[in-house]
Amino acid sequence: MFVIIAGGGKVGGQLARDLMAERHEVVVMESNPGKARALQDEIGDAVVPHDASEGRWLIDAGIGRADLLIAVTGDDEDNIVICQLGEALSEGRARTITRINNPKNSDTFRTLGIEAIVNATDLVMTMIERDVSVAPVVHLMRLRSAGLELVEMTVAEGSAADGATPEELRLPEQGGRISVILRSGEAVFPSPTTRLHAGDSIVLVAQTEFEEALGRQFAAPTIV
């Protein structure tokens, strides 16, 4: 995957390192010269020392062939416009994901129908469904964007989930979906009727507000 990260702060830098470790092609855009230089010392040519919302630099960075654009600057307005610009310049090809720093803005953007939230959900779903490698997804969801949590849990013996199916657990109604079951080292993509067993590791996408309630059905949840 070719990923452009807008914002080379703590989150952007860490994302870049993680994605590079997963052998993805990464470009980080950071307009602050000091931050850009520090990051350049570490990851070299993968840093574009410019503002990602400046169209020509986003084009230069390769938005025309990017699979994913992640906007994690400290400014919500910038993040949103970067995502919209990226979608426009890639003619909808690049998926976008953004961090919303101020919850007040999250409501504003939601009412606007700005697609950041939908995209985040789409992105997580598609990546989980398509990619066997779950690790980058876990890292992405550290962003806590879009009110979603990605949670890994082990089905405890005797828990409500032990021996039950996602359908029986009524997960969708509770704002959750099991994306993958890791069983004996293999990934199982569950249907609504796949039976869970004690010892299964599950990766659950959950709306933040329901995460705790969902977790109780599996007991001893661990937030990744």
Binding site: G55, L58, V81, A88
Partner: peptide
């Protein structure tokens, strides 16, 4: 989108950004 204002016009210095949002 939120307030249904008939005309809303943004000054945009970056010409690439301006044309992208015009297209939107």
């Amino acid at each position: 989108k939120r307030f249904n204002v008939q005309r809303a016009i943004a000054r945009v210095k970056d010409s690439v950004r301006a044309s992208a949002f015009e297209r939107l």
